[in-house]
């Protein structure tokens, strides 16, 4: 088996899994399965990236999306205890209309891409880099020189996301029993204990 053929087989196998799992994400009813299918989809995409020698992106995808985002997502789904939507609750009319529109879009796009790419599907190989070529260095170089301005704006967007999320969710509850550490430390014995002088009382049952 020639290396080219082997590569093609790998590509088609993983591409099929990518598309299949992506469709499963939107079609299964259980949210947990849906999230797990998304994980599968990410893994397959990562393999496709490996095929075009984008190792850094492939690893980042698995690390960031699978390792962090999806795990968090699963946590949230499980903690929220989302009820499984019953088939009767989903309006069938919407599904039909959605399918119709999706099919129309698909045909249009296929025609469009077919028109653009007819007779010019690239048959030659991807540009292969020589050994010692560093993906990370290239991505870093582009990100911090050519795209430094978008990169900075993206950072501001993340900051805004944090600020907005905290503003919208943090609440001070009225009857909160939270302890204030600085007040606890700064307390004086004299403020805590009040010495009251009073007459010694007689023992019980002795009074007249």
């Amino acid at each position: 088996m020639s290396p080219e053929l082997f590569q093609q087989i790998i590509f088609y196998v993983f591409a099929t899994f990518t598309v299949g799992s992506a469709m499963a994400v939107v079609s299964v009813k259980n949210t947990i399965y849906s999230a797990l299918f998304l994980v599968l989809c990410f893994f397959n995409t990562a393999v496709l990236w490996l095929l075009i020698e984008a190792e850094f992106l492939a690893i980042t995808l698995v690390l960031v999306y699978v390792g962090a985002v999806m795990v968090l997502f699963l946590f949230v789904v499980m903690m929220l205890d989302v009820k499984q939507a019953k088939a009767s609750q989903l309006k069938q009319s919407y599904t039909k209309a959605a399918l119709l529109i999706a099919a129309a879009m698909l045909v249009e796009l296929l025609m469009l891409f077919g028109y653009k790419l007819s007779g010019q599907i690239p048959t030659n190989e991807l540009i292969r880099q020589e050994q010692g070529y560093s993906n990370v260095a290239e991505v870093g170089m582009e990100l911090f020189t050519k795209y430094v301005y978008p990169f900075e704006i993206a950072a501001v967007i993340l900051l805004v996301a944090i600020v907005a999320a905290i503003m919208l969710t943090m609440r001070k509850r009225p009857g909160n029993k939270q302890m204030d550490a600085s007040k606890q430390i700064n307390i004086n014995p004299s403020e805590r204990i009040r010495v009251v002088s009073m007459k010694a009382e007689k023992g019980q049952g002795e009074d007249s």
Binding site: I153, V156, I157, V160, A161, V163, A164, M167, L168
Partner: peptide, 8 residues
């Protein structure tokens, strides 16, 4: 950036 601020 604008949209995110507006939603909040």
């Amino acid at each position: 950036l604008l949209a995110l601020c507006s939603y909040a």
